[in-house]
Amino acid sequence: MALIDVSDLHVRFGEVHAVRGVSFRVAEGESYGIVGESGSGKSTVLRAICGLAPISEGRVTVAGEELGRRRSAGFHRRLQMVFQDPYASLHPRHTIDRVLSEPLAIHGFDDREARILRALDEVGLGRGFRFRYPHQLSGGQRQRVAIARALILEPRVMLLDEPTSALDASIQAEVLNLLDRLRAERGLTYILVSHDLAVVAHMCERLLVMQHGQAVEELTRADLRARAARETYTRDLLAASEGYRPAESIR
């Protein structure tokens, strides 16, 4: 049975119909990608799953439990999110220690000291970072803190919203490797949203291409590698991700 089942999801913000009937299933331990350009509704799908955007129509089930308006603390513990901009997602006046102890306090975890130290070690930051402030950290280090904050609650599912697009290429590689290793070690399930096909191809076994709030098509990693896209839009995306080609060679 699928761990996450999204069926015919619609999200409306007033007049704006941001997501128009999207369905997909993600199995336990799988890494699933959502690709699209700005305004395609890919991040909104993620936000609807974790409760930051309203589910206007359709159903979202996680581990058999249908998600309504109110969600249990247990749900939020099992499903954690990492946001795009590591500069905006950490409180500028809280130390890393405070950032990491807050979720532990909310969910009533014991043994907080050891958990914080372990989380810092796991994301490769080390204990020396514990009492620093976000402004003393680089973008890559901040994103590691954001991952540690999500991980510290021992979730089963991580929702990753463009986790590396604000980072330099060399730092991106480090963060992707970290996410890959954590998934293997802990059997996590990922839904990763990105505009970068190469990142998704590297991280995810299956992916959904979105445009204008709708699903264009679902592909496997093998389809992507074989350039076996059925829809024109996906083919355009694939061509664009190869880099620039002068106009003549296309016609």
Binding site: A169, S170, A173, L176, N177, A198, H202, R221, R225
Partner: peptide
Amino acid sequence: LLNCLPRIEGGRRPLPVL
């Protein structure tokens, strides 16, 4: 810098870091 980019063709896992 060239090597640490993920590729659609895939291959290296983990990605080589700089």
